[in-house]
Amino acid sequence: MSRAEPARAPGARPFALLGSELATLFRRRRTIAMLGALALVPILIAIAVRVTSAGSSGRGPAFLSDITQNGLFVGFTALTVSIPLFLPLTIGVVAGDTIAGEASLGTLRYLLVAPAGRLRLLGVKYLGAAVFAIAASAVIVVVGIGIGALLFPIGPVTLLSGDTIGAGDFALRALLMIGYVSMSLLGFAAIGTFISTLTTVPVGAMAATVVLAAASQIMDALPQLSAVHPWLFTHDWFAFGDLLRNPISWDSYAQNAVLQLGYIVVFGSLAIGRFTTTDVLS
């Protein structure tokens, strides 16, 4: 009688599922379309500014007026435009789809029977959403810098503090900014993953997740609720500007990291509690 070895077989890679998850996620047409739409944001901004050569100071999103003088600012302008809606929208779609999407396809039961292990699957799914968040912010910044360099003159970058930095420092800060923005979205992705464990209808989970991001931003804009502002997961989303100060203000980075970690712990635990006890009936 053939008897497969239950212990870990030689050559089994524990990260194979993560690789498979990322490959599946990024080969999916929907994912590519969303990243394409995000890449379109800086491209449209750059073309609009180029065509109209509008740079009226003080109007429009931050950094817009800087673009004509330095194309490298297109990436930052695009981030400013994308953070309130486009980024949470795309990450809400991916995070809301994590478990609910597999459940609606029915593949969830086969992954679990494989056995993927419920904790491992949940972790891999969340990591997939997190990697997407990094990819999404990187696409905006990198495409923005690229299109800006193509259409506008580039040169040393002026920080918010009025000081000027060179190319190496700029590249470092752009990287830090991608890191900051993706980190800002991690708590949100955890919320989306938790909501995704509650339903087998992915669209419902996506919508609920995106609505939460909007609600949090609205609450953040109401001064009457100032007491809860520091606890909102969207509160520090725009503080990526602190990376454009001299010296870099790390306070918001640290504060945001702690805040996002709190959200990850709370909603991660809720997701684990829910997902490890629920009956998979789809």
Binding site: S57, G58, A62, F63, S65, T80, L160, S161, G162, F238, G241, D242, R245, S249
Partner: peptide, 29 residues
């Protein structure tokens, strides 16, 4: 002194007898 605004900054820098002010929104120094 740097007044930290959302995606903007107002600076006052004093170095001896020289004082600079800078507003990142208006680009005026």
């Amino acid at each position: 002194v740097q007044v930290l605004d959302k995606l903007a900054e107002r600076d006052v820098i004093r170095n001896g007898s020289e004082v600079w002010t800078y507003d990142s929104k208006t680009k005026k120094a």
